[in-house]
């Protein structure tokens, strides 16, 4: 069974329609990248999946339709979404943000082990755990968001531009960790990125959106090698 399946998804904000029939599939434990220019509908696709925008068509998570489900219920059925702007609760401390990530889990022993892992990946979060999340830098906030998503132990992670506004070295490190989490936990990752080169390197399959439709889809390695696709859609 596919982990995530989108079929002819239409979505928009009020009278403006953004997605004009997006279809895509991803298997359990896979990393998929979703590429395209600004305004192509990448973020809206993620929002549709987690119930943040009205949509029509079919979206299934592990074969179960997400139609008319609230964001909370979708999240509780095994999805973690790190949105644009990272969704950090800046009124709370770093530790409280992390606690909210795992607050629905019952397997306390595993949670404890996951905390150890999180602090191995991101030692800075351990140092700052008592501080307000608002004191973190952009890169540290991205780390916190990722750490929190890891603690949720989802089946599917939606990551919206994790590289945005970060220094190249930090981006490298974060992408390494994403790959590591994917391998260790078998979690599927749907990655939205502007940085197509990095995303193609990380993912197995890629979809390129153009004005709300899937323009090109295929193996990342093939897209990377295809000069015309690269030039016309990915701009590098």
């Amino acid at each position: 069974m596919e982990l995530l399946e989108l079929e002819e998804v239409h979505a928009g904000y009020g009278p403006t329609q953004v997605l004009h029939g997006v279809s895509m599939k991803m298997a359990e434990g896979e990393i998929i990248s979703l590429l395209g220019a600004n305004g192509a509908g990448k973020t809206t696709t993620l929002r549709a999946i987690c119930g943040g925008v009205r949509w029509d068509g079919a979206i299934k998570l592990s074969g179960r339709s997400l139609h008319r489900m609230s964001t909370e219920d979708i999240v509780r059925s095994g999805l973690a979404h790190v949105p644009e702007g990272r969704g950090i609760l800046t009124d709370l401390t770093v530790e409280e943000n992390l606690r909210l990530g795992e607050h629905l889990r019952r397997d306390r022993d595993q949670v404890r082990k996951d905390y150890v892992r999180v602090f191995e990946y991101f030692p800075v979060l351990r140092e700052r755990r008592r501080l307000s999340a608002s004191t973190l830098s952009g890169g540290e906030q991205q780390m916190l968001a990722l750490a929190r998503a890891l603690l949720m132990r989802p089946r599917l992670m939606l990551l919206d531009e994790p590289s945005l506004g970060l220094a190249p070295l930090v981006v490298r490190a974060i992408f390494e960790i994403i790959r590591d989490i994917n391998r260790a936990d078998g979690v599927g990752v749907l990655l939205v990125e502007q940085n197509a080169r990095l995303a193609l390197e990380l993912s197995t399959h890629s979809y390129v959106l153009e004005v709300g439709r899937v323009a090109v889809a295929g193996l990342s390695s093939e897209l990377k090698g295809n000069d015309s696709v690269r030039r016309s859609y990915l701009g590098y």
Binding site: H10, G12, Q17, G51, V53, R54, W55, D56, R68, T71
Partner: peptide, 12 residues
Amino acid sequence: GTGQMPPDPQTG
């Protein structure tokens, strides 16, 4: 019928 979105609310 100018609006293109089908009147099918996904979330409240």
